[in-house]
Amino acid sequence: MNGDRTKSSTTSTPTRVGVLGFGGLGQAAARLIAPKQEMQLVAVADLKGYAYTSAGLDLDKCLAAYQSQGSVGYIEAGGTLSNQSIQELIEVSADVDGYFLALPNLPNTFIASVAQLFIKSGWRGVLVDAIKRTSAVEQLLELKAQLLAAGITYLSGCGATPGLLTAAAALAAQSYAEIHQVKITFGVGIANWEAYRATIREDIAHLPGYSTESARAMTDEEVEALLDKTNGVLTLENMEHADDVMLELAGICDRDRVTVGGVVDTRNPKKPLSTNVQVTGRTFEGKISTHTFTLGDETSMAANVCGPAFGYLKSGVSLHRRGIYGLFTAAEIMPQFVK
């Protein structure tokens, strides 16, 4: 199994990776991996099927099958239609080194339930998610001992926020003796909300009067009606975002000092505002100051989520090959760049 390998990550053999979920984020993840030399996409699962071949999947065929027929399961070489796609893929893909869980966390217990499938299967390797909610990460924390015993290295909250911005906050915090506030503000621009249906529903779940359950139950027509009322813009404040528990676990600051909010424009690819994290604190000399880390407006949500996710997956593989298993977060481990 994977945990017994001694090969170095610097060898010419690429890391075999899979993507669970093939909506907007999953497809972007597959596109990001395609030109990489250090990683090879060998497994993909969607709601209606999966595709797996140890020789590597053809990205164009995966995209064509999903977009024309609704599932990668229709691919001739390696495709399988299934209503239990994730579970079946796990069973037939023991040689996959790591998976990016590009899955919607609706319901809020979904990611933890997928982690349990991996634990029960006997598979050993690396799992990375781009989870959002604090309560969802807390569910994974309850599985920490089981993940360790199963020989799984799991890195949680490894997207943009939580993820890239959380890690930046952890690094920026080093200038201070005490952290007063971590404020994360994001701007997302997409031309068509239907390309990221699950992500938008997760955002809607953060609006007053909505929950993960009610957002999940909304039809596309109901989502469109809501967006019509807001001119396509969602303004989110004081979100339940796992940046808080991740920074608390890393010893940076108490979770009540972390706030996350942002603006999502579902009808314009241009960001409505620049995504940034501000870390305010007191230095050892007694000075109060603020570090600000701002993402370039030209970088998309997909770039800022999928890039870090695979960077953390590479770090996870390095840890796993050294026999280090269990649960970690983006605030504890530095991502490695995937070439």
Results as ranks from 00 to 15, higher is better:
W123F: 03
A102W: 04
E142M: 03
G125F: 05
I190C: 13
L164P: 01
K183F: 10
I184Q: 09
Q84V: 11
I131E: 00
G163F: 08
Y196H: 14
R133F: 09
A167Y: 15
P107C: 15
I152Y: 02
S156W: 05
K132R: 09
C158A: 13
G151L: 02
A145D: 14
P104E: 08
Y99C: 09
E91T: 07
A160I: 06
D203V: 09
A169M: 14
A168L: 12
I200H: 02
A195S: 13
E202K: 11
L101G: 03
Q174E: 15
K132E: 06
S135K: 12
D97R: 04
D129W: 02
W193A: 12
S135L: 10
G151T: 02
A169G: 12
L103H: 02
V92P: 03
T80F: 12
T185S: 10
V96H: 03
A145M: 10
A191W: 08
C158W: 08
A102T: 09
K132I: 09
A94Y: 05
A195N: 14
A136P: 01
D97Q: 11
Y99D: 08
A169I: 13
G79Y: 15
K132A: 10
R124T: 06
R197K: 10
D95Q: 09
A160P: 00
S113G: 09
A169C: 14
P107S: 15
